[in-house]
Write a protein that binds this DNA or RNA. Structure first.
Lengths: 164, 164
DNA sequence: CGTTGACCTCAAGTAAACTTGAGGAAATAG
DNA sequence: CTATTTCCTCAAGTTTACTTGAGGTCAACG
């Protein structure tokens, strides 16, 4: 592998795709291209038609990855990022809106998983996953507020003995 | 839609695909077929080559859905279910092993998301998502133990100012 | 017995998020 | 200057988890 110029800061507004962004952000070039087609990041071109990203792409990619870790699909991330003004540099307030939005979705996912864990704990404790006569058999006690799908699901688990 | 015989319990060991399983479990027939090809559920056939599931399929489907809610891929669920003895009816201990395994994966996912949320909170609080000079700038303080990927990611977010 | 409605099989399509490959041009080490 | 590298475009492939469709069968109502 040819070594890239160490710490030679190009005009500070232009860095190349692989050489800098991919390496520094840890994503493949193909992914950067892909993100670009999805409108998640943008790039300019040099004389030879090669992409020149500005440094903020690094942060964008980082933010995309963070959002993905919250379980958010790219399409939604794209729309969130699109809400950032393209003309001006994003402000602290802009980012705050983004992160709060993501925090909310994170919270709800955490809550869902936590509830599921608790349900599972209950089932492990009383053996209702395998036996039909669980003391927690009243689904509403166990399920609390959740979608119909979930209630129906757990109700099934708790009450429908497929074997014993 | 033809109405199915209400509460007419077939030989107790055999119910039809759509009429009972799909309706009672809330999944589409096509999904049941799909699960069958993946070895997640099994079925017998009647004289006319139509599937006849036994009642435990209801529980299997319920368990599959629960596992999916933990974020577990079908392949893993399949291998977990495959660990159940095919010959005998699963015991309470069998199910306990399954649910404990899933509980563990659930826990880790919850932990991951929680940590992410806390990081995000920190960033929201200090504005470091948008500004380069965050008091939490020392990545190790913020990140604690996590994979290299994550560290690199967050380190990037915290230290690499793409704009300010 | 005939006509629906429920099933069957197998192939193909879908969506998300990327990766891989082919064919060709630009940038750079030596 | 030339051999590597790196990059470009565009098409097609990959995985997961299913759904849809075509063409044909089975079963039950009337």
């Amino acid at each position: 592998m040819k070594k890239l110029p160490e710490r030679v800061w190009l005009p500070r507004s232009a860095i190349s795709a692989w050489g800098e962004v991919a390496r520094r952000s840890g994503v493949a070039v193909s992914t950067l291209h892909f993100y670009e087609t999805k409108g998640l990041i943008h790039s300019g071109r040099n004389a030879g038609n090669q992409r020149r990203y500005t440094r903020d792409v690094l942060r964008r990619v980082a933010v995309i990855k963070i959002a993905q870790r919250t379980g958010m699909p790219l399409a939604e991330i794209a729309s969130a990022l699109a809400a950032l003004p393209e003309s001006r540099t994003p402000t602290a307030a802009d980012w705050r809106r983004l992160s709060e939005r993501w925090r909310a979705s994170l919270e709800s996912r955490i809550a869902q998983l936590t509830q599921l864990r608790d349900q599972l704990d209950g089932c492990i404790g009383c053996g209702c996953l395998s036996l039909g006569q669980c003391p927690l058999r009243n689904p509403d006690d166990v399920l609390g507020r959740e979608g119909k799908g979930a209630r129906r699901l757990a109700a099934m688990v708790l009450s429908d003995s497929g074997f014993e």
